[in-house]
């Protein structure tokens, strides 16, 4: 059983930790009282760490209690800000923290979390006998998360699969759990009830929002290759691009349109994948595959061009044409013409 405060602090999403917090019966309006200021501050730092470093820190110096309580508070904040990019980024950062801790923890803890929180079918392997493997996990549970990972070593075909079980080393198993943790936290944020926050907390939230916007601005600038003139993007591309940056869902056609457009105006495959990374950090393999496919690196070898305006209109991707749009039939034509206009 995971019962120590240390465990709760490390893995605040486990049932026992959640129950513990519940048993304290805290109200959100109590949070602005001075005795909770350390908790609230830590919650804010958690989010800040997520935004800046992409991983929250394991902070045990100021006591486990603060760690335990600051997690649900951070979840309330993130859910209150209601920004998809932040939600994903935060869940990912917490998952990375958990992954690092699991790697160092004893095998029983990993097993306990996998079984009690996620109902996985897993066993720990007796030492020496199955060197270098530590765990055997049912391939069904393995496939719940591994297909999203990009490296070849995660492909089932490269695993030792015996009698329905995948043999894993500890760091691999930690990685799989942390992916499940990421989804779990995303779900927690999504289902977290809306709560009224008082002015003090709202001020903190404003601060986080500002940082979030700065961060988004930075991505926008960094990912922009020099010779590509984003000011010349047609409205449709601008819109999908903004969706992407803000972590909103993009339809398949939308993704295809953006990818093929950017490839055609000269963006490199790797740059493009980076661009997708903040929203699909755990699905790199698929992203790379799709992008390379559209770039013509894979499969048929044909490089794709974006769909015409007509197609984009039928797919409701055209946000309504602007003046220049009326003279063209294709987003790439828009781009070329606009560049000429800018250069004049």
């Amino acid at each position: 059983m995971l019962v120590s405060k240390e465990d709760f602090a490390k893995y605040p999403f486990i049932i026992e930790a959640v129950d513990y917090v519940k048993s304290l019966d805290l109200k959100t309006d109590e949070l602005s009282q001075p005795e909770f200021s350390a908790v609230v501050t830590r919650a804010e730092t958690r989010i800040e760490e997520a935004l800046i470093d992409g991983i929250t820190k394991w902070e045990s110096r100021s006591g486990y209690e603060i760690e335990i309580l600051s997690y649900p508070v951070a979840v309330i904040f993130v859910s209150n800000i209601d920004d998809n990019y932040l939600k994903r980024r935060y869940a990912l950062a917490e998952a990375k923290r958990v992954q690092a801790l699991l790697k160092e923890d004893v095998d029983e803890k990993l097993i306990e979390i996998a079984i009690s929180v996620f109902r996985w079918n897993v066993k720990s392997l007796p030492l020496e006998v199955y060197q270098p493997f530590d765990f055997s996990l049912s391939f069904i549970d393995y496939l719940r998360n591994a297909p999203g990972f990009h490296d070849y070593r995660w492909k089932l075909v490269n695993k030792r699969l015996i009698n329905g079980n995948v043999f894993l080393q500890k760091d691999e198993f930690s990685r799989l759990i942390s992916e499940e943790v990421r989804k779990h936290i995303e779900e927690t944020i999504k289902t977290s009830p809306k709560v009224e926050l008082d002015i003090l907390l709202l001020q903190r939230i404003e601060r986080i929002k500002q940082r979030l916007n700065l961060r988004k601005e930075r991505i926008r600038i960094n990912e922009q290759p020099q010779n590509i003139i984003s000011a010349a993007y047609p409205p449709c591309i601008k819109q999908i691009y903004d969706f992407l940056i803000s972590g909103q869902h993009i339809s398949h056609v939308g993704r295809f349109t953006l990818t093929s457009f950017l490839l055609n105006v000269g963006m490199k495959v790797d740059k493009l994948i980076e661009l997708y990374t903040p929203i699909s950090d755990f699905n790199l393999r698929l992203t790379r595959y799709q992008v390379e496919h559209i770039a013509g690196v894979r499969g048929s070898g044909t490089k794709y061009t974006p769909p015409s305006c007509e197609t984009l209109k039928t797919h409701h991707i055209c946000p309504g044409p602007d003046d220049l749009c009326t003279n063209i039939k294709h987003p790439l034509a828009y781009y070329r013409r606009k560049i000429r206009m800018i250069r004049k």
């Binding site: 496939l143 591994a146 297909p147 075909v157």
Partner: peptide, 8 residues
């Protein structure tokens, strides 16, 4: 995706 892994 999982079925694809089985196929592979």
């Amino acid at each position: 995706d999982a079925r694809k892994e089985i196929v592979d």
